[in-house]
């Protein structure tokens, strides 16, 4: 009997340890990527997708959607940062350009990263950015200023009951994180 159980114990324990290792890996290789994919695809949390490639050019002139722009600051981000245009009215399908204004108020060179978010979050998957300053980190020399460009298209499939979309950018100080100019961060 001792023989049989000793072997059994060894196999049981080995299998369970394998489960533990698998569950630890599960967090990193399944949960994290799955969460990011789901948020992107479903627009959860108002996350917007990456750069959008225009495929067809239908402009729905029968509808007008109001798009509002907002700027937020993360904790001690000392820059001046605001939209140059706070509201535009657009037809779904039409490409529109607006700019944000940024000024580094500090006596040192800094790098910022803007993170977009869309409200209502249901609209996020219908809000496409073809050009966005948020695709890259934004370095500004001490006291420097810049107009930051954004080109977007509201998808003609936007649900009919949505009349207003608010796009917010939160700007973060990433000077410490910024390696010598990597231009494609995982910003979305």
């Amino acid at each position: 009997m001792a023989e049989r159980t000793d072997k059994g114990i060894f196999y049981t324990a080995a299998k369970l340890m394998a489960v533990c290792v698998a569950m630890f890996a599960f967090v990193f290789v399944v949960m994290v990527p799955l969460y990011n994919v789901l948020c992107d695809v479903l627009g959860i949390n108002g996350k917007t997708g990456g750069r959008y490639e225009v495929t067809e050019n239908i402009i729905d002139t029968s509808r007008t959607v109001k798009v509002q722009f907002v700027a937020n600051f993360n904790e001690q981000m000392p820059w001046e940062f605001k939209p140059n245009t706070t509201v535009v009215k657009v037809h779904p399908g039409e490409a529109t350009n607006i700019t944000y204004f940024a000024r580094n108020t500090q006596p040192r060179d800094m790098v910022a990263q803007a993170i977009p978010s869309v409200v209502p979050s249901r609209a996020a998957e219908y809000f496409h950015k073809t050009e966005c300053f948020c695709f890259n980190r934004q370095p500004l020399v001490a006291g420097g200023e810049a107009d930051l460009g954004l080109q977007f298209i509201v998808d003609p499939d936007l649900p009919k009951d949505i009349h207003t979309i608010t796009l917010s950018y939160t700007i973060f100080d990433v000077t410490e994180m910024a390696q010598p100019q990597s231009d494609s961060v995982a910003a979305r």
Binding site: M23, F24, V27, Q113, T170, F172, D173, V174, M177, A186
Partner: peptide, 29 residues
């Protein structure tokens, strides 16, 4: 329990190794 270990490991990496699992500035959430 391994999931809990994973959560604190991600915290550790965010704090000390420059990852951004939970930091919006680096693309995390």
């Amino acid at each position: 329990m391994p999931v809990l270990a994973g959560a604190v490991t991600m915290m550790l990496m965010d704090i000390h190794f420059g990852t951004s699992f939970f930091s919006a500035a680096g693309g995390g959430d």
